[in-house]
Design a binder for these strands. Structure first.
Lengths: 220, 220
DNA sequence: TAATTTTATACTGTATACAGTATGCAACAA
DNA sequence: TTGTTGCATACTGTATACAGTATAAAATTA
């Protein structure tokens, strides 16, 4: 949720490595995580790996059943809806607290929006999208709120990865972002909040469609 | 954030024990946590204790500096404001999603509100307050949102404990709750949201006053 | 005396070993 | 054949040992 990357210690770096493995599907959703095998594969002992797995449980990226082990929770439509419904709430509240950005900040936000289109890899595109949203809220005075948003970004990312892995990226994203920027440029904070809310809800309809068609993995 | 009490395993039970120690001040804020000493005191080995401490770091109840160890973050006015500002956002959104409670649910909510006054210990009073709020939102269809609220309850609890330890409990809480109930009884969801928001913001002014007077512990 | 280096101690990070529990397969009975 | 019981195996949970780093006090020098 917080010290999002602590590459200083071995356990800390494993958090990122395992999280990435969940995001890109190396650790498939719905399947259990074998500590011994994963530790061998990563070339570390079980202790720091378990430390990392534990933190990921608290991040809700893994689940833990006592004496059964860690699992990657299955991706479901219900789970997607519940997790993604948080962002509009938090982001809109943060934008209201942040207020209108300065002229320079707006230019930077605009630049980041164009960078989304320029990104080559899908990971790059998702990173760019997150960067856009974080810059949009950069002046929010509440660090806890921003942490929660970063947390939800990490939690939901695997859905986007999985979708883009099988389907074309939707580039309407940049248009929706542009609407936010336009509203901000004319000093219309409420309008920007509306545009942001719609970007964070209806903007994800393609993933909804894809998810409801997908056969969910058997939860072991 | 989630499996809030997992008493099944030793590490799981230590999460609760250590969290309680932070809440009631046994582990004072601003101070470091010595793994060896704490393990001896609790009669366990370092491994499950570290597992518990790690989860508490992800819960933001402890902080971790590499090769320096775990610490209880100092309680500050800024931290209090930032953490408590989340609840109005989440709770109001959840109440809007939950909609008007049934007649029976309202009676139960009312009962829980009276139970706050009846509680003898301060821990009991805080538990009762949390129970009231959770019942109020019980019909919210988004489990992630409810989890976040529970998470914030745990994160902020130590401020209430510390305040009540030195000051009288404020019982206006029950009156503020009553206003929420009255609004709900007359079918006024928006009014209930307003009353809830004010309960979760201005209702905490005594703690603000106390905190700004308190000399903060030296952050080691 | 004040500043700096040295040295000893304590604590964290990681690896490994062991114990107890879950899981799947085989043997057996109905 | 089908359901049940017992057993072997694999995996998780916990304890302990060791290595490396931070911390603080002592010693040394200016």
């Amino acid at each position: 949720m917080q010290q999002i990357g602590n590459l200083d210690t071995l356990a800390g770096s494993l958090v990122s490595r395992v999280r990435d493995a969940v995001h890109d599907g190396t650790l498939p959703d719905g399947e259990r995580v074998n500590e011994v095998h994963l530790a061998e594969k990563l070339g570390v002992s079980r202790t720091p790996l378990r430390e990392a797995l534990n933190r990921l449980v608290s991040e809700q990226i893994l689940t833990l059943r006592p004496r059964h082990g860690y699992s990657v929770p299955a991706m479901t439509l219900a789970g997607f809806e519940a997790e993604y419904a948080i962002r509009p709430i938090l982001d809109v509240a943060a934008l209201e607290l942040a207020g209108l950005p300065s002229r320079e900040a707006l230019d930077e936000i605009d630049r980041l929006n164009h960078a989304i289109l320029a990104a080559q890899t899908m990971a790059g595109r998702i990173d760019a999208d997150d960067a856009f949203h974080l810059k949009l809220l950069a002046h929010c005075p509440n660090p806890v709120l921003l942490d929660l948003i970063r947390h939800m970004m990490l939690r939901t990312r695997r859905y986007e990865f999985a979708y883009f892995r099988e389907c074309r990226p939707f580039l309407s994203m940049a248009d929706e972002h542009a609407r936010i920027i336009v509203a901000l440029r004319r000093g219309d904070l409420a309008g920007a909040c509306d545009a942001l809310r719609s970007n964070l809800t209806s903007g994800l309809d393609p993933i909804r469609v894809w998810l409801s068609a997908r056969t969910p993995p058997s939860q072991t």
